[in-house]
Simulated assay, not measured.
Amino acid sequence: MAQRISYNHNIVKYSHGILQNVEDDVVMEFPLTIFVNDQEFATMVCTPTHFDEMVIGFLASEGVIRFNRDIKSMKIDENKGIAYVELFAEITTSQEYFSKRFIGSCCGKSRQFYFHNDARTAKTSSSTTTLTPVQCIDLMNKMQNNSLVFKETGGVHNAALCSPTELVASRTDIGRHNALDKLYGYSLMNRLPVRDKVIVFSGRISSEVLLKAAKIGVGIVLSKSAPTDLAIKLAEDLNITAVGFIRGSSFNIYSHHHRIVQP
């Protein structure tokens, strides 16, 4: 049985000098606990859609799996809020491995990651995909217009995996990381080549978001919002084009501007 995404809640709304009782759509928060090889691995608070994609994308992002075929079986019990994942191989689940700060280097540059698994799974992009300015703005508009849940509730993040001209997959979640994990899971489950794809995102490009994009394997990230300084540094190092503040007919290019070309 599919989970509800939002529900009606009675509120008091103030508008134009008047208080009135109305109904409002409120997005739902759902906790999903993931067990890997019978061990509790993580609990994710999410929007209850595309659980399978989110779990697979999360495990890949954490370096637990590399491909969908690494999973022997997966069962999601929506009533209990539990995902049971069995892998063909054992995993390392020690706290030290998944939370230890790590500093490494690549191609002669200093690269700093927060966690061990970031260093193992983040990819330096080799993408040769380019976009025109009009395509950047058009993809952002397409993603925004495609998000019915955001229009109804205003309480979710939107993310889309795109070709230069079309949305390939669009996902919504209360957690920006979850939305990206769903896209990652989608690409793995469908064996979708992503080097020529673009991620379009509604939220801020933080270092975590940039790393998620690197792990997925894209070379361009488009956002409606701003990047952080660490995200820009990582984008420079990982050869990813970060574009922010896509609003109306303008935007800012923060790294590797060669991928945004005038026709």
Rank of each mutant, 00 (worst) to 15 (best):
R66H: 14
T132C: 08
M74W: 01
G57V: 00
D77Y: 00
Y114W: 13
D118Y: 06
T129G: 06
I137L: 06
A122E: 15
M74A: 03
Q95F: 15
E86T: 06
M54N: 04
S163I: 01
G57Q: 06
G81P: 00
T92F: 13
R120Q: 13
F98A: 01
T130V: 15
V149C: 11
R120N: 08
I71M: 03
C162L: 02
R69M: 08
I103S: 13
K75F: 09
G155C: 10
L167M: 00
Y97F: 07
R69D: 10
A60T: 03
C107R: 14
D70L: 08
G81N: 02
L139C: 04
Y84L: 12
A83Q: 07
K72N: 13
H157V: 00
M44Y: 05
Q112G: 08
L148G: 03
E62G: 05
L167C: 00
S94K: 11
D138V: 14
L139V: 02
N158F: 04
T121W: 04
C136G: 14
R111S: 10
V55Q: 00
G63P: 00
E53S: 11
T165P: 07
K142W: 08
P48C: 05
D70M: 04
I137M: 11
D52T: 14
E90R: 14
N158D: 08
Q95V: 15
C136P: 06
K72S: 14
S126D: 09
K72A: 11
I137G: 14
K75C: 05
F51I: 04
F98W: 13
D52H: 10
I65R: 04
F113L: 00
C107I: 15
E53W: 09
V134Q: 14
C46A: 10
E53G: 03
F58R: 10
L131W: 08
E166A: 07
N145K: 12
C162D: 01
M74V: 06
I91T: 09
S105E: 10
F67K: 14
V64S: 02
A122R: 13
K109C: 13
R111T: 15
T93F: 10
F113K: 00
E90P: 11
S73I: 05
L131E: 07
L167N: 02
N79C: 09
K109D: 04
I91H: 08
Y114I: 12
E86D: 14
T165R: 15
K100R: 09
K109M: 13
R69F: 01
S163E: 06
D118H: 10
S99W: 11
S99G: 09
E166L: 02
M44A: 11
G57T: 04
G63M: 08
T165H: 12
R111C: 10
A160V: 05
H50G: 00
N141F: 03
P133C: 14
P48A: 03
G154Y: 05
C107E: 07
H116N: 14
L59N: 02
S126K: 11
D118E: 11
K100C: 08
V134W: 06
S163L: 03
F58S: 12
F113W: 07
S110R: 07
I65H: 01
A89K: 14
